[in-house]
Design a protein around this nucleic acid. Structure first.
Lengths: 209, 209
DNA sequence: AGTTCAGTGATGCGT
DNA sequence: ACGCATCGCTGAACT
């Protein structure tokens, strides 16, 4: 009865039983079992995208003789190992400490490289630019008087971020200021991407260095 | 430019770009990359259940110098390898040929072991038992006159299977025949499981040997 | 082919 | 804590 915390990958001949919200049994065969440091357990078959069985983060894994048992709340996965074909523990697999990388931090990095990102001569940058619809994350003004209206998201930008940018831009349209709308984030969802395309907004791939 | 078909697992320091329905970039770091024989590509971070990036079955993977590139329709994943920490090719990882294991086949197996599964003395089994609501997959009659009403599903039983069983049982209730309802399948969904619990049906884990 | 719907959906952001 | 919207959903059954 040994608790396992380390992240590892295991390729083995085994049979698997799951009982919880649903139930299932997997016939003896070769499966790929992945265990992450947060307790996540993934059981993959030879094909298809989906896992066959899993536990979400927070599950606890232990070994009992030739069984691997993962439990979480009311859900249990029991793996009956018949033959271990390959076992590997992942060194240095931890979330880089993203802490303290706030949007403000990312914004500073963007300001530093703003000319390169927009490929234009920027003469002024104004964070938290006030509008009646709320403060714009960043406004950059080019030498030709063009206003870049920039919405920044630390994570994946979703539809809400794109519509937020649209609101700001409608204000600048009201005061007849020439603008270009930009959404900047490490990733963008399909919905937000389509919204941007339809409204002529740009997306900039920025990432916390 | 070498096309890769074999299934493998790769743990590497790399950066990754995805462009398709959505877009994203992954900062340089350690990621687990899994490639299946059907083209499926999975990219996992150190925590969480979800993949960070993926390609569904049918994608094509190739290597160009220090890049791994997976393409499918309008979607591309480009992996820039910096350091390979661990690489392993999976031997014997293929879908066992589930040849033509129809529900009828499974039913024959169930009939053979019916006494053991139900833990009762069965004196007669009737496949395709006709009722006004459709044919019951299997009816087993015990020495005490109890009727086991059995609905069989080759794959995961979903809600529809459970309600189907309920319909049959309502008929036997009409003719005042004492019954016990069973759903037999290798897996059962949460909705079907709850339905069974609420109506007092049983679930039997059966699998094609 | 498209369409609909369940899934152990997960995950993040709001209250 | 719970609820809600979003997601490159996937996958299977049915038309």
């Amino acid at each position: 009865m040994i608790r396992i915390d380390r992240p590892f990958s295991l390729y083995a001949t085994c049979s698997i039983e799951y009982e919880g919200r649903a139930k299932s049994t997997l016939t003896p065969g070769n499966y790929l079992i992945i265990h992450k440091g947060d307790g996540t357990l993934l059981i993959h078959g030879a094909s298809k995208f989906n896992v066959l069985n899993y536990q979400p983060p927070g599950a606890i894994l232990r070994r009992e003789h030739d069984h691997l048992i993962s439990t979480r709340k009311n859900e249990t996965i029991k793996i009956h190992l018949q033959q271990i074909i390959h076992y590997y523990e992942f060194p240095d697999w931890s979330n880089k400490i993203d802490i303290t990388m706030t949007e403000k931090h990312l914004r500073l990095q963007i300001i530093e490289n703003i000319g390169m990102i927009l490929n234009d001569a920027i003469i002024e940058t104004i964070p938290e630019f006030a509008t009646p619809y709320g403060p714009v994350d960043l406004v950059a003004i080019s030498s030709t008087g063009l206003y870049y209206i920039i919405e920044i998201k630390r994570n994946k930008a979703a539809l809400a971020g794109a519509t937020q940018l649209g609101r700001y831009l409608s204000y600048f349209r009201e005061i007849e200021q020439e603008t270009q709308g930009w959404l900047m984030s490490p990733a963008i969802s399909s919905g937000a991407l389509e919204y941007c395309r339809k409204h002529g907004f740009h997306w900039g791939s920025v990432r916390h260095a």
